[in-house]
Simulated scan of single mutants.
Amino acid sequence: MSEAQPVVKCLIWDLDNTLWHGTLVEDGHVEVDDVIRKVIVELDARGVLQAVSSRNDHDEAWVRLEELGLAEYFVLPQINWGPKSESVRRIAERLNFALTTIAFIDDLPTERAEVAYHLPDVRCYPAEQAGALLGLPEFSPPVVTVDARRRRQMYRAGFERDQEREQYQGADEEFLRSLDLEMRIGRARDEEITRVEELTLRTSQMNATGVHYSDAALRALLDDERHDVLVVSMSDRFGPHGAVGVMLIEKTPQVWRIKLLATSCRVVSFGAGAVLLRWLTDAAARAGAHLVADFRRTERNRMMEVAYRFAGFTTTDCACLASFAPPEGTECLHLEPVRQDPPTTMRVIAPDPHVRAREVEWR
């Protein structure tokens, strides 16, 4: 699959004569065949989110999905009489997914054309192709992790979190403290590498270089004393967020080089990227090491550049750091670190700076 065809992160289904046989408003009783049911269940197991965009009465259609035992598989249903392109756009925006990772399936050429005209990056499929979706590379993630299999549940918890946030009367910082957030930064274990690779593939807005590290390349670094492969996970009182970040750091006694920093867009609003950089700055200051970071601009990672700049990183030609010169097309950012205070909005458990195999609370 080419770079222009990333893995689909969300498939949006039409209902009438697509997901089920018949038209609900006319036939009154509609059924889903076993092939479509298998596609829905398997895509969910692969970590592909699924939503609905349908011209129907919302309550009637949703009740039928519940009766069919399928309602639980769909997030953000858009069942209304408006343009489907607007429904697709709303779903993508709510999920914070790039339109290039969204797919739409409908039996009517006119509906597919309307979506394609207004949202040309969305991939559109005719209903008769539904049974073949599982065999297409864009619906076949190269790895399926524990987090992928529970992605729908994690997003649902996220929507509940968002709803409570909207209703919260206090300041944002107070709300974050009310969540009992915990961030864990740990050296990657062998069984976590597939999730780390997935993060480098799926994360675009908060990926400092856009570089994909393969499973084999990451595993080769696990026992390398010069490299730390760190996995970042988060949880709160609503449940686990799962693995939300990855850092690859090359170390010498004098210089730490951040070769990869990527975090999920789902935790941007919690300040996860800033917390990671603050922790790393503090750890480097404790070790007396200079910090340098690889950064390569992509079409979507402006937020990551802002995070680096806000943390105090500036551009350098790395003339005095020849062994850390970044690959062609990549900028070298640097920072002379000073001690940092831990955040007040979350508890951070991270590697002990003195004992490699131990994790301690950042204080």
Rank of each mutant, 00 (worst) to 15 (best):
F238R: 12
S264A: 10
V292H: 09
S269C: 08
A283K: 04
E299P: 10
M234S: 08
A311E: 15
P327R: 05
M304N: 07
V338T: 12
M247Y: 08
D223C: 06
D341L: 07
W256P: 06
D341R: 06
V348G: 13
A289V: 08
F313L: 13
C265V: 12
G271C: 07
Q340N: 02
Q254G: 04
V306L: 13
D294G: 02
G273A: 09
S233F: 01
C265K: 04
L218I: 04
S269F: 10
D223K: 09
E305C: 02
R266K: 02
V306P: 08
P342W: 04
T330C: 12
D224K: 07
A272L: 07
A220I: 03
S233Y: 00
E250Y: 14
R226Q: 01
S214P: 00
T252G: 06
V244D: 09
L277H: 02
V292P: 14
L335S: 08
E305K: 05
R309E: 00
K259L: 07
L280N: 08
F324P: 00
H290A: 13
Q254D: 11
P337D: 01
C318Q: 12
R237D: 08
E225V: 12
R302A: 15
C320K: 10
L280V: 02
V338D: 12
V231K: 02
S269L: 12
M303K: 11
F295H: 03
G245A: 11
H227L: 09
M346R: 02
H290E: 11
A285K: 02
R300Q: 15
D224Y: 11
F324H: 09
V275M: 08
D282P: 14
A287F: 01
R286K: 04
A325Y: 03
L321R: 11
I258E: 02
H290W: 14
Y308F: 15
C320Y: 12
L280H: 02
L260Y: 07
K259R: 06
P342R: 01
A285F: 03
M234D: 04
E225L: 10
L277Q: 00
L280M: 07
M247I: 06
R297L: 08
V275Q: 02
F313V: 15
A284P: 04
Q254C: 06
A285I: 03
V244P: 02
R339A: 10
R296H: 13
L261V: 04
A262W: 07
Y213G: 00
A287V: 04
M346P: 15
R237N: 03
V348L: 11
R297N: 06
P240Y: 13
A319V: 12
R237V: 01
L248M: 14
A274G: 10
M304H: 14
R300F: 14
R226H: 00
L221F: 05
V267E: 02
A311T: 06
K259N: 10
